[in-house]
Simulated scan of single mutants.
Amino acid sequence: MQAIIFDKFGAADVLHIGEASEPVLRPNDLLVRTRAAGVNRADLTHRRGGYGWPDFGDSTIMGLEIAGDVIAVGEHVEGYAVGDRVMGIVGGGAYAEVARIDYRMAMPIPDGLDYVHAAAITEVFVTAHEALIHLGKLQPGEKVLIHAGSGGVGGAAVQLAHATGATVFATAQASAHELVRRLGADHAIDYVNEDFAEVVERLTEQRGVDLILDFIGAPYFERNVNSLAFGGRLVQIGIMGGIENARIPLDRLLYRHLQIIGTVMKSRTQEVKHGMSRRFKERWLANFVKDGLTPVIDSVYPLAQAGVAQQRMEDGLNVGKIVLTM
């Protein structure tokens, strides 16, 4: 089969298309003819050597989410058959014509949804649901601040928060404000020219928000804590801005009874990942219909241009998901 391979860690131009062996079917696996694969920041980390060759999960081939057609099923698989259209998160191997997925991580592609959109759902929406609903305990009527609201996970989180009945504050570049409002944000904050903490303080009459979902890390940490209402929760889901010099106002944490929760999907056990996928599927999958939930697609590239696709993400040019097609 054709797959994206590389011989050394480095910049995006180390990636090239070549021949690789098809994955071996195991008892709990589906073999899937991949039609589309989502591009994620973890792929960039893999390419740079952040995980090392032997430690990237199921495959040395990169890629974490797929959409395609089942071509074989393992002996312990339940609920799926050859010919089914499926999407889901894999432990590596998505950048290839054939991938394997644990059937407990797979989901049926909703009727009417194409492969490109299906490949852009699971990583971002499962992550957003876990952070907002399962860990963040977001309730109807609460106020939530979502950073990077025009990104993949951020855009998914804005949609889920709106569908939950929360009042949604989202940070994004001014050029993306129309998009985040269309996704469901009640208030769009220009993080380049505005201090989000000052905006939140003003719009909530100094009360703060009940929940914050943050991908940035140290540069936002102190202001995030100061922007939380009594009993508020901060879910830290990324550290794109670094980890150095993160300041925490302990008096605010103590007297406001705040909670700080960290989460990352990749390092969790398979059993935990099964639960994350199941919770999302049961709560939201039926909502991916016309005029319902939808992933934001930034751009689509053929598999052979995986390096170009990753460079777009690395340069911070994408608004929404980048998808590869086979």
Rank of each mutant, 00 (worst) to 15 (best):
A94I: 00
L203T: 01
I133Q: 02
G151W: 02
H16A: 02
L64R: 08
R181Q: 13
N28I: 05
G307W: 14
L113H: 01
S299Q: 10
M62I: 14
I261E: 08
G136L: 11
Y95G: 10
I109R: 03
G155R: 04
M87G: 05
L234H: 06
G79Q: 01
P54F: 09
G316I: 13
M240E: 07
V300S: 09
V272P: 01
G79V: 06
Q206P: 05
V300F: 03
G242N: 11
E22Y: 08
V272A: 09
G232Y: 07
K273H: 06
A172Q: 07
G184V: 08
R207A: 14
Q236D: 00
A12S: 15
I4R: 01
A185I: 03
N40K: 03
A3G: 05
T269C: 10
L30P: 09
E194I: 05
D291N: 15
I71A: 04
I297Y: 01
H46S: 10
L30W: 05
R202F: 09
A229P: 07
V264R: 10
A119R: 03
Y115T: 10
L138F: 10
L132V: 06
I101N: 00
A37L: 13
V14K: 09
A246S: 04
R85Y: 06
F169L: 13
L303I: 08
R247V: 14
L213V: 14
G79L: 10
V77A: 09
G320I: 02
H274Q: 11
A67L: 11
G231L: 06
G10I: 12
Y220W: 06
T325V: 15
G112C: 13
V24H: 10
E271C: 08
L44G: 13
G92K: 00
I61E: 00
L213I: 15
L145V: 05
V180A: 02
L135Y: 12
D298A: 09
V209Q: 05
D195N: 15
G217L: 00
I5L: 13
E314W: 02
A12R: 07
A286Y: 10
V168E: 07
L324N: 02
V235E: 01
R223W: 10
G10M: 05
V199S: 03
I5S: 04
I260D: 06
D13E: 15
T127Q: 02
H274N: 05
N193G: 13
L145Y: 05
V264Q: 12
M265K: 00
S150T: 10
G83F: 12
V98M: 07
R268F: 04
Q206E: 13
V144L: 00
I17G: 07
G316T: 04
L25C: 04
R252A: 11
M107F: 01
G49Y: 12
V32T: 02
G49T: 03
L135R: 15
G63N: 05
Q305P: 10
E130V: 03
T167M: 15
A119Q: 09
M276S: 11
S277K: 02
R202V: 08
E194R: 09
I4T: 03
